[in-house]
Design a protein around this nucleic acid. Structure first.
Length: 570
DNA sequence: GCCGTTTTCGGCCCGACTGTTTTCAGTCG
């Protein structure tokens, strides 16, 4: 797959041309091409071989030629040309807050800045400040941006950002003058990682609200503070942006600040063709405002139904909306249970009775206790006797419950040699079998998972890629073969909702669904409160276009009993 | 550089904040 390589080259060309002061529209053309190739779900090499490059939106004569040249010769003249003048090391520095393309290019031309060390030098010796248009405050801003750049190069995971956002929103909600408030940005879209936290609020006293915002507990630095917009850093270095708008613009502002940028650009183009203008303040025909109070106004203005935030990526949702084939996304109200919870029988911290109580309080009708199997010694894996004792306890807990059932399950290891960690005889006694790879990440993982799926008792493959977000790549696994195997054997794939995993991911869920595979959210909770991680899994499911029928968590106990029977009896 | 339900030429999404300016460029989202 050369998609990523080509997307990166086009991105760098865009950055380099922007630095040199090239026409913004040309820069944008490269940026758009970069993004669209990054998001392609097909191998660009296949598309090229079939002569369909020009069918990709944003790819015209010039781009197609460059792609073709790269695919056939391994290099691209245009890229080589810009890299000679503007090195990738220099382009990296665009990640520094407060330092944009024009300033960086000037620093390169006038001060010979080529990398981070050079930049640090010209800041300290005052030569950057002496350049035209520069001043003490700008340089100080860049210096701070550089420190932050070094400290936190990575995005924050959703599970870390969401509680921070929720706490700030709760405090702001109580602030005088605030009438409506909501998360926005990638957080509202439930992206697995977010760059910053966006909050939108409705109120008539913008300045006062921003003032209050910049002095909230946890704020360590104020980046901007105006009448409608404020920006702060909180402990841990996360940036939080707040916008305040008037009531009749709340919908348009929420739509606008929720993004994604690509999605919004598409909507604005559509509006323009209808003689309308969309901005965060509303929908306008000339100077007349024709909508903006509610988010629906924006979509109805361009003839579309409201598109749920999780779909707003320009991944085909606009076309689907136009053709009336948006999915009816699964929602939290559809959730009846959790398939992957650890108890104190292995490395979890809570009793089966308390897990059942918590799950029932969340409105579920079942929870599957799936502790580790014996080989997972590091995680307190159960031997056969412990497992049988646990099943006995589950029976006893169930006898005292009405309208709720604890399912006896296991997270059984798929061992390095490909066998499962318990015999079929034992697995056959359980309600739910989740099979997971915990070792031998480079040893024939695809074959091992395919073999596990052929076992009549295995219902779900746990965290199918094994990735840990921003820490570990995942196993060497051919996911497409796994998905096809899952479809053939009727095995479900897990959406592990633990926020460091989110495995399968949104796009992989969508692909699995397209191949006819069922999915099952498991929180992998080890503590009671982690049962709430289900919302992250649900976010992934919705971003993966899943509907109620695609997700086993929405099944009734009766439907499940059928679905979880040994494969030969289904 | 791309693209066409007004266009094969002339457009291309829109606005706030900051700092350095005397009317605006750069940066960000």
């Amino acid at each position: 797959m050369k998609n990523r390589a080509i997307a990166e080259m086009f991105g760098r060309i865009a950055d380099a041309l922007e630095m040199k002061g090239e026409l913004p529209f040309r820069v944008n053309a490269y940026r758009k091409a970069s993004r669209v190739i990054q998001d392609l779900r097909e191998d660009i090499e296949d598309i090229w071989k079939e002569g369909r490059l020009r069918d990709i939106p944003g790819i015209g004569e010039g781009m197609a030629q460059k792609i073709e040249q790269f695919l056939s010769t391994g290099s691209m003249d245009k890229y080589e040309e810009v890299v000679r003048e503007v090195s990738p090391d220099l382009i990296e520095l665009l990640g520094i807050q407060g330092l944009g393309p024009r300033t960086l290019f000037m620093a390169q031309q006038k001060l010979n800045v080529r990398n981070l060390d050079d930049l640090s030098r010209v800041i300290e010796n005052g030569s950057l400040e002496a350049l035209p248009g520069m001043g003490a405050k700008k340089v100080e801003n860049i210096r701070k941006g550089m420190q932050l750049f070094l400290a936190s190069m990575e995005r924050i995971s959703l599970g870390v950002a969401l509680p921070v956002a929720e706490e700030m929103i709760e405090r702001l909600r109580k602030t005088t003058g605030v009438t409506r408030i909501s998360m926005a940005g990638s957080l509202r879209r439930y992206k697995e990682t977010v760059g910053d936290i966006d909050v939108l609020c409705e109120g008539k006293t913008g300045g006062d609200i921003i003032q209050k915002f910049t002095t909230l507990p946890g704020v360590v630095r104020v980046l901007a503070s105006g009448e409608t917009k404020g920006s702060v850093l909180v402990e841990g270095g996360t940036q939080v942006d707040l916008r305040v708008v008037e009531p009749d613009s709340f919908g348009s502002a929420l739509q606008y600040f929720t993004g994604s940028k690509a999605h919004n650009i598409r909507l604005r183009e559509m509006a323009k063709k209808r003689g309308l203008k969309i901005s965060e303040y509303g929908v306008f025909r000339g100077t007349e405002k024709v909508g903006g109070r509610d988010e629906e106004d924006i979509y109805s203005a361009v003839g579309l139904p409201l598109i749920p935030p999780e779909l707003r990526e320009d991944w085909g949702e606009i076309e689907a909306a136009m053709e009336g084939r948006l999915p009816e996304l699964v929602s939290s109200a559809d959730m009846r249970g959790d398939f992957h919870v650890h108890s104190s029988y292995s490395d979890g911290s809570d009793s089966i009775a308390s897990i059942a109580e918590k799950a029932a309080a969340m409105g579920y009708s079942f929870v599957a206790i799936c502790d580790h199997s014996k080989t997972a010694r590091y995680a307190g894996g159960m031997n056969k006797d412990t497992l049988l004792a646990q099943m006995e306890e589950i029976r006893s807990v169930n006898s005292g419950l009405k309208g709720f059932r604890v399912l006896a399950g296991i997270e059984v290891d798929i061992m390095a040699d490909g066998r499962l960690d318990f015999s079929d005889e034992i697995l056959g006694k359980l309600d739910v079998v989740v099979a997971s790879v915990h070792s031998g990440f480079k040893q024939r993982v695809t074959e091992r998972i395919l073999a596990a799926m052929k076992n009549p008792h295995v219902d779900i493959i746990g965290h199918p890629t094994g990735r840990l977000i921003s820490r570990r790549e995942g196993y060497e696994v051919d996911l497409e073969r796994v998905m096809r195997g899952a479809a053939e054997t009727g095995t479900a794939l897990e959406i592990n909702a633990y926020y460091d995993r989110m495995d399968l991911s949104d796009l992989n869920c969508r692909k699995a669904k397209e191949l006819g595979v069922s999915l099952a959210i498991g929180t992998d909770a080890h503590h009671l409160e982690q049962l709430e991680f289900a919302k992250f899994g649900l976010g992934v499911a919705r971003r993966g276009w899943l509907e109620k029928r695609d997700l086993l968590n929405t099944f009734t106990l009766n439907q499940l009993a059928k679905r979880m029977a040994p494969k030969s009896r289904r």
